[in-house]
Design a protein around this nucleic acid. Structure first.
Lengths: 277, 277
DNA sequence: TATACTAATGACTAATCGGTCATTTGTCAA
DNA sequence: TTGACAAATGACCGATTAGTCATTAGTATA
């Protein structure tokens, strides 16, 4: 498992320097200080490496954003905190941001394109949730437009982090974009993305978390679990899905058990969605 | 010359389907219905093809935007016209937009990265010019931020054109984004990109058009010219650069001669910049 | 020490790449 | 019809690729 992480990190470096197609497995293993054979013990193919990397790096990003959005109860600061966490992530992980967001190296591989699109849709949901909490009914007509503006701000200002390493005042940037977002939200009168357009924009990704998908995810991870608390929590959540027994409090507790370990963040996130918690 | 265009068009199709590195010269020539050898009669290397494509497709885009910005004198409509032309271009050339803007396939090749960055900087200049004309002194502190917002709107909404082919109301989109731009311009109070930050952001590209660069460009194209008017105009402009003689009117006239032929749009654009016309 | 097992190696293969060049094809004027 | 020239071809080359597998190194148990 540690080997996998090493490979993913070094591969990310190389991908961000040279791109995906231009980076050979040999180069990756050289930088890792391992043999080519060892690579194929961790990943069946080069493509599988990339798929794992997308999951590894984008899940973290989505989770961070969602936690800020759902964890900040102060309406005055939630927008600022949102932008701060986004750009802090761009700053800390500029290599993966460059590879996965700005380049869309993987545009061509259908499976990966859908994966990335699905993660982007997750982020859109978090943003929409934030807007609904902030502006409630004031934003009926224009909330999708405001969301698109936010994503545009992100894409545009991310350049500053991705293509240069000059010191930037994150706090000031977050304040500036929060103000812009608030201005747009309050003053926009001409929407473009209307409710009837949304179904066509919504990308081919699971709108809701399906029962089978969650069960499969839990199944996959039940064996990796070493800590007994986590193993038991996963086991119990699996049973709960197949045969609902406990109340919300217990379910939430089990999920929180998982959320404590970064390795289970994603499971916690998805399971919470399934149970609407 | 026609062969070159055929190759560039078919290559663009393949690049947008599979990406640059993943597309082989063989595939390109197969789709063109020519032999591999014939390819190398038109382009010395695969890289040279890509460089030519960047010039061919991005120049058109920059010129279109600049013409709208400088040609629309009605302050009420310039923003709407600007967005309409941008998204019309995205709609008409979604393949090249996908390849050159959204993917940055060429991020890794230094030369190409600088080229694309330079073209983007050209567009930024056009946008800034538009903002200065529209808002004049009202936008001292925040004009760079507004420009970044505009570029963000473009990047975000361009998705709709690039990743789906549903019919969209261009007029409505342009009006909606024009309103958003106007709102941002009027209400923003917290700038992020301040004047002292700009020199660091400005990318390593020729800030002003250098004399030698223009001379070289004219030199290169003097032989391609078939129409005698155009050949003569280029010749005279070259002499004018080396030895200023005529007044603005004559120079502008010579440039306009070139602007009439799409093949010389770019030369006209650059030369006009050199003479500050 | 001997045995059994897994982890790790790197030489190897078959395929594909960008690019070359001797050869063929097509098109003129003579 | 011939000869001269340019346009076009595709077999071929060396280099590189993703992926394999017989072999070796390392480690734990008996």
């Amino acid at each position: 498992m540690l080997k996998k992480q090493l490979i993913m990190e070094k591969a990310l470096e190389l991908f961000s320097e040279q791109g995906f197609e231009a980076t050979s497995v040999q180069q990756i293993t050289d930088r890792c200080g391992i043999s080519k054979g060892a690579f194929y013990l961790s990943f069946k193919t080069k493509d599988e490496l990339v798929i794992s990397m997308v999951d590894y790096y984008l899940q973290q990003f989505i989770i961070d954003v969602d936690q800020v959005v759902r964890g900040t109860y102060n309406k005055e600061t939630v927008l600022v905190e949102f932008y701060k966490s986004i750009f802090q992530a761009f700053k800390d992980h500029s290599a993966s941001a460059r590879v996965f967001f700005n380049e869309k190296v993987f545009l061509t591989k259908k499976e990966l394109f859908h994966k990335i699109t699905a993660y982007e849709a997750e982020m859109s949901k978090s943003i929409l949730y934030m807007l609904e909490q902030l502006y409630q009914d004031q934003l009926q007509e224009t909330k999708y437009d405001v969301m698109y503006c936010i994503k545009g701000f992100m894409k545009s200002y991310a350049e500053l982090f991705i293509f240069s390493d000059m010191p930037l005042d994150l706090e000031q940037l977050a304040k500036s974009l929060a103000e812009k977002t608030d201005i747009i939200a309050h003053h926009t009168t001409i929407p473009f993305i209307t409710a009837d357009l949304v179904p066509f924009i919504a990308k081919p990704c699971e709108q809701d978390v399906s029962k089978d998908a969650v069960l499969q995810l839990l199944e996959q991870n039940i064996n990796h679990a070493e800590d007994s608390i986590e193993k038991e929590s996963i086991e119990l959540l699996k049973q709960e899905i197949e045969n609902p027994t406990y109340g919300k409090a217990i379910i939430k507790g089990l999920i929180e058990n998982l959320r404590l370990d970064p390795a289970y963040h994603w499971i916690a996130y998805v399971t919470a969605k399934y149970f609407n918690i």
